[in-house]
Design a protein around this nucleic acid. Structure first.
Lengths: 212, 212
DNA sequence: CTCGTAGGCGTACGTCGTACGCTTAAGCGT
DNA sequence: ACGCTTAAGCGTACGACGTACGCCTACGAG
């Protein structure tokens, strides 16, 4: 065997994530990562086939500490809540990477494990068949949307401020002003509660979860 | 006055959207749009300052027929549902453009008008202050996430099929197989119902909507 | 010590957005 | 009718991007 690899893939992922945190997603280029590592650009290609693979590495690296074990909360809605908050906790420090994570969510082993835990909770709560599909997708849909929204167009962001100053849309302006008093945490938790309340009562056309 | 403009901005937006529909978002380049219009690349810059402005044009063009007037449904949850479905109807034919629309949602006049209608419905239903903020953001968060999910990683897409074949994640695999029987329309409507059910009952800590 | 293998890198190509400056067509005042 | 002014339209070029290709070289097995 010749010459050992001088780099662990984790170091590569960490460097890429550092670039993202510092310069944003558009700043993530092969050249920037190489510079971050003190290597030449083409040396990276000994570790990844292409940019897409590097992005997948970043995704898994971001979520490396995500706890996917079944939560111990007594009520199933709290279990789901715990699982969702765990994701947010991991993702929180790296808001600029969120679009990457969403794009790679179906390819990340860790996220698949996390999803397995979520479905397991849903199944135990009584969701079956199409009902379970819709519950899972609705939940993940909200989660993706909320995480994206927290990064792009945050409550305290410039977009909201512009809206608050508009006179063409009085209700939106008033709501945008009220938004200043709502923290990102409260927004996320509040939205999650809405979804969970909706989940905890069966719809008119479907077999809902078991009554608690 | 010299020489009239030979192009209406709408034609520019329509051409760009046609490129997206045909070649996907990565296919949207200034050169491709220019070719679509039979002009030179630089001629486009007589109409837009840069690529970002072209993208905003596409956003508004996509939603040009969005009906933002107050829906006539008797119950406020149905009014919200109608508003949400209207967006989906407009966006449906152009799934590849969805990430663009989401990125520009705070800059699009039409979407602001739409949001104004949503907030008006929420206000009439009794949502005030921070509660209204959370309701709006939760709703929009779900909507964004669901639309994105319908484009990237659709229920019938390859990602879901791969998961269905996995033996490491039995619950996910079973759910993915059940997903084959759920249409995109049903998924969207089902998720929306979940959110609306959650909205229609006040949380423990907040002043909810008026009882119906 | 030698040699095969794979790590690391330099160069180069095609693509992108777009800055800059030229040519040219069209409406106006005369 | 005719030029003049002004902006439409375009050609060229630059820097940054992802990455194909081929070279040099450090290392561990024999």
């Amino acid at each position: 065997m010749p010459r050992a690899r001088s780099l662990h893939p984790d170091r590569l992922a960490a460097a890429a994530l550092a670039v993202i945190d510092r310069d944003g997603l558009p700043g993530l280029t092969m050249r920037a990562v190489a510079t971050e590592l003190g290597m030449s650009t083409m040396a990276l290609y000994r570790y990844v086939a292409d940019r897409a693979e590097l992005e997948l590495l970043v995704t898994d690296w971001c979520l490396r500490d995500l706890d996917t074990s079944p939560p111990g909360d007594p009520h199933w809605t709290d279990q789901i809540k715990t699982l969702a908050l765990r994701v947010r906790d991991q993702v929180g420090p790296h808001p600029q990477a969120i679009p990457l994570l969403i794009a790679n969510r179906q390819r990340s082993r860790i996220l698949l494990r996390w999803s397995e835990s979520v479905v397991t909770v849903l199944a135990a709560a009584g969701f079956t068949g199409a009902n379970r599909v819709i519950a899972l997708r609705g939940l993940v849909g909200y989660l993706n949307g909320a995480l994206l929204q927290g990064q792009l167009g945050a409550l305290a962001g410039p977009g909201t401020e512009v809206i608050a100053a508009q006179s063409d849309f009085p209700m939106m302006a008033e709501t945008a002003r009220a938004a200043r008093a709502v923290s990102a945490d409260r927004e996320f938790a509040g939205g999650l509660d809405i979804v969970l309340r909706g989940l905890s009562r069966s719809g008119p056309g479907g077999a809902g979860p078991a009554p608690s």
